[in-house]
Structure formats: structure tokens, C-alpha cells
């Protein structure tokens, strides 16, 4: 059974068909890239997957369980972590507190009025930060971080829940080249070691072809190609879309 199974997904805004009859699947431990030119429907796809948008039709199943109609916080409970294209962190908190809040949620302590949140699961939070290389900056407020560092905090936050599926929307945008490689290496390693299914979108083709085991190409809301990197690279339709528009 696939970690993520998408069948016939469609979504329209007003008159615009943003996603049309999209089907694909991602297996546990697999790193899959979702690519396509701007406006191809990648982010819409992600928003459908984690429940921010409700599809007009189609089916989304996590390990065989349908998640259509669930709200994002419910989808997360089923093991879906997500990073955003424009990073979203809690700017009034420190780096560690950002992770602690995710851990609180994981341990279902969100309505606890007990001991101060700052003292909760400090080691676990620091361990997660260490994984993404942010342990040095744990006490810094998020509001002052560099963009690349925010992306890493987001990844740590997304991992707090031991996800089965990790959705990464342009995880390396705004990073320097070596940072990109490092972050994606981390994600790929996690996928292998923890059997996490990773689905990511990316503009940097080097990153895509280095790390993705499979690639899905969206254009105009439709899947125009899918398969191993070499197959996709050779696909004439993909070449037309990318080179034709370039």
C-alpha cells in the first residue's frame, strides 16, 4: 500500500481549472518531486493534500485511509508534515519554542494549563533542531533568522510529529547552493532511515534530478509526465513545456 495515493484530483477557482484529474502515488521511503512551470498547480496540489483546500472531486488516501474533507490539523494527526513555499513560523517565539509547540501538539498537550511550555520536552526539541543543524540558534527569536535558517526550522517542526508523509513546498528557495544540497541530503536520508514518503516541489532542476527517485510533471493543472528522472528528462512533452516557455 502506498503512503500517499492520489486519484483523479480536481480543483477549480471560479472559472480556472487549477488542478485537473491528477493521479499519482508516493511510497514510504521514496523521494518524489512535483515539478512544473509557475502556475502549473503545484501549490494547489499541496494545499489539497494537507486539507487547506477541499477538492472538487477525486480521492486522497494516506496509507489507505481517505483524508478528503479533513481539516489541516486533522490531516497532520494522520502523519503529514509540511513546509511552506513562503516560510511560516511563529515569529513571537524562539527557535526552540517553535519546535516545542509542535511537540506539545504531538503529545496532545495543547489544552494543558500546567507547567510553562518553555520547560516542555527541551531535549527532544533540541534533538530535532540538531538534526537540521539549528541547535546553536535554539534560543534565538525566529523573527531575526535568515531565510535559509527558517526553512530548516520549518523542517524540524514538520518532523516533530514523526510524519509518514512530508510535503515540502520549494524547500530550498532562497538558499545558497551548498545549503540546498545539505538540506535535501538530510531529507533524503530521513526518508530512507525513517521510511518517510517525501513529496517536494522545486524550481532548481539540479536539486530535482539529484534527489528525486521519481518525478511528476504538472502543466496547466494536469500531469503530463511521470516516472524516473531519466525518463522524464527525455520526455518530449516536458522538453516542450520547459524549453518552449523558457
Amino acid at each position: 500500500m502506498s503512503a500517499l495515493e492520489v486519484r483523479g484530483l480536481s480543483k477549480a477557482y471560479g472559472g480556472v481549472q487549477a488542478v485537473r484529474d491528477v493521479s499519482f502515488s508516493v511510497d514510504a521511503g521514496e523521494v518524489v518531486a512535483l515539478i512544473g512551470p509557475n502556475g502549473a498547480g503545484k501549490t494547489t496540489c499541496f494545499n489539497l493534500l494537507n486539507g487547506q483546500l477541499r477538492p472538487d472531486s477525486g480521492e486522497i488516501a494516506l496509507a489507505g485511509r481517505s483524508v478528503v474533507g479533513l481539516r489541516p490539523h486533522q490531516v497532520w494527526r494522520l502523519g503529514v508534515g509540511r513546509t511552506f513555499q513562503v516560510t511560516a513560523t511563529f515569529s513571537s517565539m524562539t527557535v526552540r519554542e517553535n519546535v516545542q509547540v509542535a511537540l506539545l501538539s504531538h503529545h496532545r498537550k495543547l489544552f494543558s494549563l500546567g507547567k510553562p511550555a518553555g520547560r516542555f520536552q527541551v531535549e527532544e526539541a533540541d534533538a530535532l533542531l540538531a538534526r537540521v543543524g539549528m541547535q546553536q540558534q535554539a534560543a534565538r527569536p525566529c523573527a531575526v533568522l535568515a531565510y535559509g535558517d527558517l526553512k530548516r526550522v520549518e523542517l524540524a517542526v514538520a518532523l516533530a510529529n514523526r510524519p509518514r508523509l512530508l510535503l515540502m513546498d520549494e524547500p530550498t528557495a532562497g538558499m545558497a547552493s551548498d545549503e540546498r544540497q545539505a538540506l535535501m541530503q538530510l531529507a533524503a536520508a530521513l526518508a530512507r532511515s525513517e521510511r518517510i514518503a517525501v513529496l517536494f516541489t522545486e524550481h532548481d532542476m539540479e536539486v530535482v534530478f539529484n534527489f528525486a527517485s521519481r518525478i511528476i510533471v504538472l502543466h496547466g493543472g494536469e500531469v503530463i509526465a511521470a516516472g524516473a528522472p531519466d525518463e522524464v528528462r527525455a520526455n518530449p512533452r516536458v522538453r516542450e513545456v520547459y524549453l518552449g516557455n523558457a
Binding site: 481539516r71 490539523h73 509547540v101 514538520a158 516533530a160
Partner: peptide, 9 residues
Amino acid sequence: LRAAAIGID
């Protein structure tokens, strides 16, 4: 957005 994405209702 982030809050919902880490399971906070």
C-alpha cells in the same frame, strides 16, 4: 497556516 499544519485546531 503553520499552526494548522502542526495539528493545532
